[in-house]
Design a protein around this nucleic acid. Structure first.
Length: 573
DNA sequence: CTAGGGTTAG
């Protein structure tokens, strides 16, 4: 078009940019293509055109170049819901859920009348799931009900995933059931993976059977989910049977499925069989496949296969520090200290850094983050002291700190100190201090839960009489009464008492009411009007420091004033 | 004739 001097317009840019992302066959990397068109658009003064800029944000989001997306977003003179959603989605899909939530709150607080739509909601739900922000997620649930978005299967699927990733299996199941006959493959997949990540392997397989019996064709993702579920639950034979049944459903196993199988076999200790499977593959084993093998080698302390996996991995993904760390860990536990040293030198040589351990906890709808060996947070000393007390108790019970997980070459005592500073321990301590007795402590962690934290948290659950749920990168750990248990959280048991949607709505009514401020008699009428208006339109505000007592007061107030809000329940059930 | 979304994985 340029050569022929055909004039371009915003449409040209939008389509051109989208094509860049799709152009996987091109010799030029997609990012270079996008930048080229971006530059062109800037020269023609189209760089900040609302549609063009929004497309640019999305392109950079898909390429993982967050800073470019941010620059475009910041420079836009006019931003609408779609632009905000694109930017929120950028954070959400690039593993920065905290920023996504913050941006969403900023959007809700802005003076412009930006009304989130179903796509905004889906994006932000995804972010809530990412950081275990259950309180935030419930507010969104209320919003969904008020806006009638619960008629959209895509929204319900995202909501279901949010609940399950926040540890509320029961609520997730409830949503699933409420979808009725409109369930699509994604709904089924979400339920299967939800059961899987909680260790409910049999239930996941059962759902799979139910799904196929109803004539729903399982997808590639269905098999990843159900095989993953078998792996978490140690269902080796079941997994093998499902893997072999894939051809019956016209699904050819991909590298991802092999990765699941290698994980399943390896975790169960069938390392030879896992290696045989890799060697029998008709496609090139992906880094994930070798990674599964390496992970299994760490559990079963198998040096030889670990080296075999790493000889491939160091070649395939030389910049992934995790692989070096895992192998170093395996060497360290096998007391091969010189090999550990070699790996550390390698890490330094390539200027690679371990991903810092990081944990989140949501308290009163506010998110708190902890980094391992955090010196900035003023509360850390207090938290560490608390953990230290538990550890002293534990040592009397015969506990020995598992300093094997610390790879630094330092004194035992120093190693123990580092263990005390692990982010999940800090988060657990913070949770104990800042939530009431009987409340469940929910933690999210960006890496795997280390063995020491596992045993310490287990002990704390008993000693502090608290249920603690830790979600790490790939599964849930429920701790109750000194044991690692497979169970539903009591929070979801409480949810069962009231029909879920009613309860959620009730909560949100109170939230809407309280936003206006005091519950004074003379404000009554204005308050009512405001609350109802909020219910029907833009009610969500995000940092309401609401105590349970205040909520009850609000509900009582409504009853007292004789406001009939039952029609709202009927509307949505 | 334009823009943004849900399920998976060591």
């Amino acid at each position: 078009m340029g050569r022929l001097r055909v004039p371009v317009d915003s449409y040209s840019y939008v389509h051109g940019l989208k094509a860049c992302i799709a152009a996987s066959a091109s010799h030029v990397p997609a990012s270079a293509l996008v930048c080229e068109i971006h530059a062109h658009a800037i020269r023609r003064c189209y760089g900040l055109h609302t549609h063009v800029a929004t497309t640019l944000i999305d392109c950079y989001a898909k390429l993982g170049i967050i800073s470019y997306a941010e620059s475009v977003f910041a420079a836009m003179p006019e931003r609408n819901v779609v632009s905000w959603t694109a930017m929120i989605g950028c954070y959400a899909k690039n593993e920065r859920p905290g920023d996504a939530i913050m941006l969403f709150q900023e959007m809700m607080a802005s003076d412009e009348d930006l009304v989130p739509n179903s796509i905004t909601i889906v994006s932000i739900l995804h972010a809530c799931a990412g950081v275990n922000a259950l309180g935030q997620g419930k507010l969104l649930h209320a919003y969904i009900l008020r806006r009638g978005f619960d008629s959209l299967v895509s929204v319900l699927n995202a909501l279901m995933a949010m609940y399950m990733k926040c540890g509320c299996l029961e609520a997730g199941r409830h949503i699933f059931n409420s979808i009725g006959h409109r369930k699509d493959v994604v709904s089924w997949n979400t339920l299967i993976s939800g059961y899987g990540m909680h260790g409910f392997g049999h239930e996941a397989v059962q759902v799979f059977e139910e799904m196929t019996q109803m004539g729903v064709l399982p997808s590639i993702i269905t098999f990843i989910s159900v095989l993953g579920a078998c792996s978490h639950a140690g269902l080796v034979d079941e997994g093998k049977r499902l893997f072999e049944s894939m051809v019956d459903y016209n699904v050819t196993p991909r590298a991802e499925h092999y990765a699941c199988m290698v994980d399943l076999l390896g975790r169960a200790g069938h390392l030879d069989e896992a290696v045989e499977l890799i060697q029998s593959m008709h496609i090139r084993p992906s880094p994930q496949v070798w990674g599964s093998l390496l992970g299994a080698c760490r559990i079963h302390r198998h040096v030889e296969y670990a080296e075999m996996a790493c000889s491939q991995l160091f070649d395939l993904e030389p910049r992934n520090a995790g692989n070096y760390v895992l192998l170093a860990d395996i060497y360290a536990r096998a007391k091969l200290h010189s090999e550990v040293g070699v790996l550390k030198d390698l890490l330094e040589e390539h200027a690679l850094e371990k991903v810092p351990g990081c944990s989140w906890i949501e308290v009163k709808k506010k998110l708190h983050m902890f980094v391992s060996v955090d010196n900035k947070n003023p509360q850390v000393e207090e938290l560490q002291a608390l953990i230290g007390e538990f550890v002293t108790q534990m040592k009397n019970d015969g506990y020995v700190p598992d300093t094997g997980v610390v790879l630094y070459d330092i004194e035992e005592e120093e190693k123990e100190k580092i263990l005390l500073g692990h982010s999940e321990k800090l988060a657990v301590a913070f949770g104990l201090i800042n939530t009431g007795r009987g409340e469940v402590v929910r933690i999210t962690k960006n890496l795997r839960l280390c063995e020491d934290c596992h045993s310490v948290t287990k002990f704390i659950s008993k000693f502090a009489e608290r249920e603690i749920i830790v979600r790490d990168v790939n599964r849930f750990h429920h701790f109750r009464d000194g044991a690692s248990v497979k169970c539903m959280s009591p929070a979801s048991a409480a949810d069962r008492k009231t029909p879920y949607t009613s309860q959620i709505l009730m909560e949100s009514i109170s939230v809407a009411t309280l936003r206006e401020g005091a519950l004074k008699e003379e404000h009554g009428e204005r308050l009512q009007k405001f609350a109802l208006q909020q219910l029907l339109h833009k009610p969500l505000h995000l940092e309401p420091e609401i105590t349970h007592g205040k909520i009850q007061m609000a509900v009582q107030y409504f009853n007292y004033k004789g406001v009939d809000f039952t029609f709202l329940f009927k509307l949505h059930q």
